[in-house]
Amino acid sequence: MNTITLQSNSTSESTVIPNIFIDNYMPSANGAYVKVYLYLLRCMASSDMEITLSSIADHLEDTEKDITRGLCYWEKVNLLSLVRDTNHQIVSITINDIYTAKDSQDAEEYATSTAAPPSEPEQAETVSISPRQNFEKPTYSDAQIKQLTNHDEVKWLLNIIEIYLDRLIKPMDLQLILYLYESLGFSAELIMYLYEYCVSKNKKNPSYIEAVALSWAEEGIDTVEKAEAATVLYNSNYNAVNKAFGLNRAPGNVEKQFINKWLNKFGFSIDIIVEACNRTILMTQKPDFKYADKILENWFKKGVKELSQIAKLDEEHSKSVNAKANSSKMAPASKASQSNRFNAFPQRTYTDEDYSSMEQRLLNKQ
């Protein structure tokens, strides 16, 4: 677990909270965010105190994601300055002087400072965070395993997972469970639902379970309710594509990439995707994901957002085809007319009187 080193030029047994924070910033802030800011002030009062996002979350009984959200909030109102590495991980936190902080456009939506600045503003204090990769997986030592598994919640969790797996916990299973619980910050209930979901798909391999867990973490799924909603949507979308293509199997990895591209990059609803799959079957007589991708890419470029817009595109396409067909039919007649040698003479238009006169002349000749 990476540490955050807090540095201060002075030590104090008390934490000073400016009145301007209580008067102008605290009322409009989320209570969890207020706890984050106050805890940072408390930590700065301790010389060379080392912390982690995980330890802050544990102390405040919150998740690491919520801690990060709190830090980002205070960055918006300009009370904190955050520095991130190339992996978008926070590597430095500067606690700005609350009296001299300039309000940004976002800050105006949350708080307005009315207090006059002191003659000698305090210097900003800095928190340094060691950079780390996303979801770095540690290897837990025997001592760490003993310490973590000594908690009643973890003991209970391991017993439940053994029931799900229908076997004893193996060392690889234990490392994964502790990783989910300690590093990813999954609750015991979320871990149980994770194993229940994977086992229901007949997937008990730790690598598969870990892959699902990481995808949830990337999507910000940190509760059982969010996981249930995501799995229902996941299954319904894939099932809809399978049904349209007439597949009786789960999509392969490449096929999943296509479906995720249509849903996430193109932002299409599942009914638009199914329409593309239906047209693919009609044109190719087979479930061709590449062909369907071309259809959807064309619709995406033309700004399709709703199924009704596709009908308009079809109508425009039909008109264009008919116009070209009519144009091609007229072209040969025109060419033949131009090649007729009698066209060089002026053409006369006859009236009813002309026809009557010619008829009378013919009768007189008889």
Rank of each mutant, 00 (worst) to 15 (best):
Y208D: 10
G246N: 04
I191A: 03
W216G: 06
K201A: 07
A213I: 11
Y195C: 02
L190K: 07
V224D: 14
I209G: 07
E218Y: 15
A188L: 05
N235R: 01
F186S: 02
Y238W: 02
Y208F: 10
I209E: 06
A230K: 13
V212C: 07
N248T: 04
Y208A: 00
T223E: 13
K204H: 09
V199H: 01
V232Y: 08
D222V: 08
E218M: 14
E189K: 11
L214D: 08
L214H: 13
E219H: 14
A217G: 06
D222K: 07
E219P: 11
S187L: 11
Y208K: 02
L247H: 02
N248L: 06
K204E: 13
F245E: 09
Y238K: 00
N202R: 04
V241T: 00
K226H: 14
A250G: 11
S200M: 05
A244P: 12
A229R: 14
K204L: 00
C198H: 05
T231Q: 09
S187C: 12
Y234G: 03
V241M: 01
K226C: 07
V232K: 13
D222W: 10
E219S: 15
S200F: 06
T223H: 13
S215T: 09
F245G: 04
F245C: 01
A188H: 12
E196D: 15
E210Q: 11
N205L: 00
K243A: 02
N242I: 01
A250E: 15
A230Y: 14
S187Y: 11
K201M: 05
Y208V: 04
I209W: 10
Y197P: 03
L233M: 06
A240D: 03
N202P: 03
P206Y: 09
E210I: 00
L190F: 14
F245L: 04
C198L: 05
Y234Q: 03
N235K: 03
G246V: 00
A188W: 10
Y197A: 05
F186K: 01
L214V: 10
I221D: 12
I209T: 08
E210A: 08
E189A: 15
E225T: 13
N239I: 02
L214N: 07
N202Q: 11
I191M: 08
R249N: 12
A227S: 12
E225W: 08
E219Q: 15
L233A: 10
I191V: 14
Y238N: 04
G220W: 11
E189W: 00
N205T: 06
Y195D: 04
A230F: 13
K204T: 12
Y195G: 01
L233R: 08
L190D: 12
K203F: 04
A230S: 10
E228F: 03
E219R: 14
S236Y: 02
A217T: 00
A213D: 10
E210D: 10
N248V: 02
W216I: 01
S215K: 15
Y193L: 06
S215P: 12
Y197N: 04
Y208W: 07
A217I: 01
L214W: 12
L233N: 04
Y197R: 02
Y208I: 03
W216Q: 04
M192V: 14
E210H: 07
S187T: 15
N239L: 03
K204Y: 11
S207P: 01
N239M: 01
K201I: 06
I191R: 05
V241C: 06
V241A: 05
D222A: 07
L247N: 08
